[in-house]
Nucleic acid binder design. Structure first.
Lengths: 101, 101
DNA sequence: GCTTACGGTAAGTGAATACTTACCAAGAGC
DNA sequence: GCTCTTGGTAAGTATTCACTTACCGTAAGC
């Protein structure tokens, strides 16, 4: 497991950050709207977005005074690749051991 | 995202627990061997295993005084299902938005 | 029955981390 | 130029949570 994946799992290991990711499924949103409805302050959201960005799970793009965040397909692709490999390898090995009993 | 997936992401959001899962890829192991080589104490490993078990990521099976832990294929299947759905939905929607620009 | 091996649990501590308020920078509109 | 909106950052606090030591229960072997 490389550094990126470590950070990605750590990033997804928090309820608020998962909520942010969920909100971004529909498409890009500015910080203010992302914070709206969440039980935490806007600065807290900014800090979470930074962590998600460092994990390559989100991207940001400035537009005037607003800054739009969106899911980062590349980062998610990397995560998916790792998980596909994990399942392919480990679970087949597991099934083999189960059946040999 | 239902309760199980919440717990699964939380469970995977810790380095030690990810290390345990990595070790279990090769097959079932008793607690002692799992703890061997890790920089934490055996009771710490027990506590982590409990969290992984509650998240349905591992199973355990007693055998004499030993207790063998292994990956839980059902739990991982649930996680995979969620992620597949996530990618299918969200990233297609994302691509659509990108292309319409 | 006694000892040894294995592992779960309790209780307490320390460190990581999620949160707050206060402040500052940058762009848009008048 | 001034104001308003938007959002990042700093500093401090509080809570979560990972870890330790100590203890106990259970199975196996002599």
């Amino acid at each position: 497991m490389n550094t990126y994946q470590e950070r990605q799992f750590d990033a997804l290991g928090d309820v608020t950050r998962r909520a942010l990711v969920e909100r971004l499924r529909r498409g890009p949103l500015p910080v203010g709207e992302l914070a709206q409805g969440l039980p935490v302050s806007r600065p807290a959201v900014s800090q979470h977005l930074r962590i998600l960005k460092e994990a390559k799970l989100v991207r940001d793009e400035a537009s005037g005074t607003r800054r739009y965040y969106s899911l980062d397909p590349n980062g998610f692709a990397m995560l998916r690749k790792y998980l596909d490999n994990f399942w392919g390898e480990a679970l087949e090995a597991f099934q083999a051991k189960v059946e040999e009993k």
